[in-house]
């Protein structure tokens, strides 16, 4: 909590909310100020969050703001941890990249782009990372169906058999 308050004192405009849940402190930050806050947390005396532990996207569809990106930071010298949460609206899912502050965010941000379609402005290499390069859509969005294969019974056997891809001669 003390760390979150330090950040709030430094950036009263940018910190929108501080949540404490099961001992984890989450600071909700305005996306415009993210890079500035992250750089401050990495360099400030007494904070020194030098390791980016985790970065992941969350889709709250159909609520707005739809997307959130969660950043877990850890400080090796002080052994403390904090989580940032940054929201982006569904119509304009763009975040500033923090690869300039933490180069290790590179793959994480590519994964969030791949899975959620959240763009990271200024990212050096924003390509799909897990899905094939020509995949259409972003699979971990909540409005993206999981998909399944229909079970064949005797009453629908012929219809499904006809739809199945068959090897050519």
């Amino acid at each position: 909590m003390a760390i979150a308050n330090t950040i709030r004192e430094q950036f009263p405009q940018a910190v929108m909310e501080i949540i404490e849940f099961r001992g984890d402190v989450t600071v909700v930050i305005d996306r415009a100020a993210l890079v500035e806050v992250a750089a401050f947390c990495r360099d400030a005396d007494g904070l020194r969050f030098n390791l980016l532990s985790d970065l992941c996207g969350i889709d709250y569809w159909p609520e707005e703001p739809r997307f959130a990106v969660s950043y877990v930071l850890y400080s090796l010298p002080f052994n403390h941890t904090i989580r940032f949460k940054v929201y982006a609206p569904g119509k304009d899912p763009v975040m500033p990249t923090i690869t300039g502050v933490y180069p290790g965010a590179n793959y994480h941000e590519r994964e969030v782009w791949d899975m959620f379609g959240v763009k990271f402005d200024g990212h050096p290499d924003l390509r799909r990372i897990l899905m094939p390069y020509d995949w259409i859509g972003h699979p971990q969005r909540k409005d993206y169906p999981l998909g399944y294969e229909e079970v064949q019974f005797s009453f629908n056997h012929e219809r499904i058999q006809a739809q199945k891809p068959q090897p050519k001669e």
């Binding site: 782009w113 763009k119 290499d125 924003l126 390509r127 799909r128 390069y133 020509d134």
Partner: peptide, 17 residues
């Protein structure tokens, strides 16, 4: 021909070959 297609390109030209 695999990969190395950037986000911006996919947006304008889905499934760039």
């Amino acid at each position: 021909r695999y990969d190395l297609v950037h986000a911006s390109q996919v947006d304008t030209d889905q499934g760039a070959a």
